[in-house]
């Protein structure tokens, strides 16, 4: 289990303890984090799990799949260098202190 901090659109922070092997998108949906949708269930076809990665204390995020890059081109909110699709970030104890910001909108 590893903590992930979500910064919601209104600025509130929510910390969720996520089991290993679960993606940040799955954790957000299960915990009702408003603003992360994950319509396709993590199949890299909806781009409704867009987040901004604010910080990470240790470990490395998985590299971006070309399909993720392609899909990020079409996200509804502003695309930034720290944009990721949350369904592609699978949690493990190696990822310490992950903080993600929920974008203004997904569609």
């Amino acid at each position: 289990m590893t903590d992930v901090t979500f910064i919601l659109h209104d600025g509130t922070r929510r910390i969720v303890d996520v089991a290993d092997g679960i993606s940040v998108m799955q954790a957000a949906v299960m915990e009702n984090i408003k603003g992360i949708d994950g319509e396709c269930g993590g199949c890299l076809s909806c781009a409704t799990c867009h987040v901004y990665v604010e910080s990470l204390e240790a470990g490395e995020l998985p590299a971006k799949d070309p399909d993720e890059d392609a899909l990020l081109e079409g996200v509804a909110a502003e695309l930034r260098p720290e944009s990721r699709l949350a369904c592609q970030i699978v949690m493990s104890p190696a990822l310490v202190g992950l903080v993600v910001r929920v974008p203004e909108r997904q569609v």
């Binding site: 396709c40 993590g42 199949c43 890299l44 076809s45 399909d67």
Partner: peptide, 8 residues
Amino acid sequence: GSKLCQRI
């Protein structure tokens, strides 16, 4: 051209 199938 949908790739959905490949990920399911």
